[in-house]
């Protein structure tokens, strides 16, 4: 086990972690702000990548391709949103349905299961080739970091506005929101569009980074997104109270996740088992708040009982 192998792999892990961090911020919006577990993202990830790659292959500019990929992602989010609000399908199932449908859509967009893009022939914004030995301003790590800072700043401002506050209220307490005249169904659709737009943008960046789009590229993306959200909260939850910092901690959580994966690979863990490892780690982390609560309630009951006896004696 040569430590230099690991060190050499770290810039790549950082770049990947940051790109997936954009997706994780999208997951944060649905999962934490809106209290919806949106499984659409597994499909949206690939849709974003596929649209971006196909547009570039047909000669479109990289910026235009990425904007269109993001917009298509938003349409996908709208579909899940309408499944949920207009057709009354539970949010999780709505996401699964969209994701399943997207498999076919993604295949049709690409024409086959995999489409590659030659990094030498196209002018890409990010690539695994642009991580080292390149002018600083072309470095993928810097470019994606700038993306994240801009996205976090925009989201921070947006969620502080009148409408953004209404979105947060919708996620926090829909009954209260409706009593205050907030259209909760409409807001859920908007949040899902916003979230899936970010996921598709992330997918477009990943496809460029790895040089291809693949129909399976989003498999398990929601799990990575959740992992990033949970790691970010576990590491920074106590110190980051501000909404912008919370979003940032999610992106950092994604980077930590990719570092851990690199270490796991470096140790020599069977890559076939990687997804199993991911699933178990996320399961345990999701369980922690629940365990904390049940244990806490247990001790709270004891306190109440103690008070009761005091009152009776008095």
């Amino acid at each position: 086990m040569d430590i230099s192998v690991l060190i050499n792999a770290l810039p790549g892990a950082l770049a990947q972690g940051l790109i997936w961090g954009i997706m994780a911020i999208g997951v944060y919006i649905t999962f934490r702000v809106m209290d919806i577990a949106d499984l659409t993202v597994d499909g949206t990830m690939c849709t974003g990548g596929a649209v971006c790659i196909m547009m570039m292959l047909s000669g479109q500019n990289v910026v235009v391709s990425m904007i269109v990929a993001t917009l298509v992602g938003m349409v996908v989010g709208m579909v899940t949103g309408l499944f949920h609000t207009w057709m009354g399908i539970p949010a999780i199932l709505a996401g699964i349905l969209t994701q399943l449908g997207l498999y076919g859509v993604n295949l049709k967009i690409m024409g086959k299961s995999n489409q590659a893009l030659n990094v030498d022939k196209y002018d890409l914004l990010v690539s695994l080739r642009y991580v080292r030995n390149i002018e600083w301003y072309k470095n993928t790590i810097l470019i994606v970091a700038v993306f994240i800072v801009i996205i976090v700043a925009l989201l921070y401002m947006f969620f502080g506005t009148e409408y953004g506050s209404a979105l947060r209220a919708t996620g926090c307490n829909p009954n209260m929101a409706r009593a205050q005249g907030i259209n909760t169904n409409f807001n859920k659709v908007i949040a899902l569009m916003l979230s899936n737009g970010l996921v598709a943008l992330s997918g477009a960046l990943i496809a460029q980074y790895q040089g291809f789009a693949d129909v399976n590229m989003g498999r398990g993306a929601i799990v990575i997104g959740l992992a990033a959200v949970i790691i970010g909260e576990a590491v920074f939850g106590k110190i980051f109270k501000n909404f912008a910092l919370k979003l940032l901690s999610v992106a950092i959580g994604s980077v930590i996740y990719y570092f851990v994966i690199q270490v796991v690979l470096w140790i020599g863990v069977d890559t076939d088992l990687l997804k199993l490892f991911q699933a178990l780690v996320v399961a345990v982390f999701l369980a922690v708040p629940y365990w904390k609560k049940t244990i806490f309630n247990h001790s709270a009951k004891k306190v109440v009982k103690a008070n009761d006896t005091v009152e009776k004696e008095a």
């Binding site: 502080g160 506005t161 009148e162 506050s165 209404a166 947060r168 907030i182």
Partner: peptide, 29 residues
């Protein structure tokens, strides 16, 4: 039921202040 627990006191009041009005996505809450 009547309040948003994860939001501040002033934020809750501000939400109520805008009941029945258009909520602008460009104006601070």
């Amino acid at each position: 039921t009547g309040t948003a627990a994860t939001m501040g006191i002033a934020e809750n009041l501000a939400l109520a202040k805008r009941r029945g009005k258009m909520r602008n996505p460009f104006i601070t809450g």
